[in-house]
Computed example of a mutant assay.
Amino acid sequence: MITITEFQKIGVGLSGFGVFFVLFGILLYFDSVLLAFGNILFVSGLAFIIGLRRTAHFFFQRQKLRSSAAFLGGVALVLLRWPRIGMLVETYGFVLLFK
């Protein structure tokens, strides 16, 4: 049986809220504040679920550097208030990361 720690439960909640805020930000015509908040919650939730070391290892593997750069660059573009371009770049990186 798999045991789930309290940190992982918090991580699932953070990731869920992150996805919610991203979708809500897209529905509100790419509201950059909601998208940025959703991105931060999603990435921090991922770190809570699998741990900081595994998260860093996942994003910075040699074969995933281009997709990680695209995903994190898209997050940075959203934070810099370029939400449409940032979400396109982020989606490209997300698809390459999780294929």
Rank of each mutant, 00 (worst) to 15 (best):
L46A: 13
L23W: 08
V12K: 02
S32G: 06
R53M: 08
G16Q: 05
F21W: 04
I40C: 08
Q61H: 07
H57R: 09
A56F: 15
R53N: 13
M1D: 11
A76G: 01
V12D: 06
F21G: 02
G16M: 09
E6M: 15
F59G: 14
I2P: 11
L14K: 00
S15A: 08
D31K: 15
A36W: 03
L34F: 04
I10S: 07
Q63R: 01
R54G: 03
E90N: 05
S44H: 05
L23V: 11
I40M: 07
V78C: 10
G86A: 02
R84L: 06
I50A: 00
L35I: 11
S68Q: 02
I2M: 10
I10Y: 04
A36Y: 01
L96K: 14
G11W: 01
I4S: 01
V43N: 06
V89G: 15
G74E: 14
L27N: 15
F59H: 14
G18W: 00
L97D: 06
I4G: 03
E90D: 11
L88T: 04
V19M: 07
Q8C: 05
G73D: 02
T3H: 14
L46D: 14
F42L: 12
Y29E: 12
F7M: 13
G51H: 12
G11C: 01
F71C: 03
G18V: 00
F37D: 05
T91Y: 03
S32Q: 14
G25Q: 04
F17Y: 12
V19K: 01
A70V: 14
N39D: 05
G74S: 12
R81N: 09
R53V: 08
M1F: 07
L72Y: 00
G25A: 12
G51I: 04
W82H: 06
Q61W: 00
L28K: 12
V89N: 00
L96Y: 02
I40S: 07
R62C: 09
G18S: 10
Q8E: 08
L88N: 02
L27Y: 12
A47W: 06
V19I: 11
R81E: 10
E90W: 01
G38F: 09
V43T: 02
L97I: 13
A70I: 05
G13C: 12
F58P: 07
L23D: 04
L72F: 03
F42R: 01
A47K: 02
A76C: 15
I26C: 11
L41D: 07
L41I: 00
I26W: 06
I2K: 13
A36C: 15
R66A: 14
V89W: 03
F17D: 11
F21E: 09
R54H: 08
S68Y: 01
L46R: 06
F58R: 04
Q61M: 11
L77S: 15
L72R: 01
F42I: 00
L77E: 12
A70D: 13
S32P: 11
M1A: 14
L65W: 10
P83G: 09
F20A: 14
G86Q: 10
V12A: 10
G16H: 06
G93M: 00
V75S: 14
S15Y: 03
G45L: 04
I85N: 13
L14V: 05
G11R: 01
L27I: 07
G38M: 09
H57L: 13
K99W: 06
G86D: 09
V78F: 02
L14Q: 01
V89L: 15
S67Y: 10
S15H: 03
I26T: 00
R84F: 14
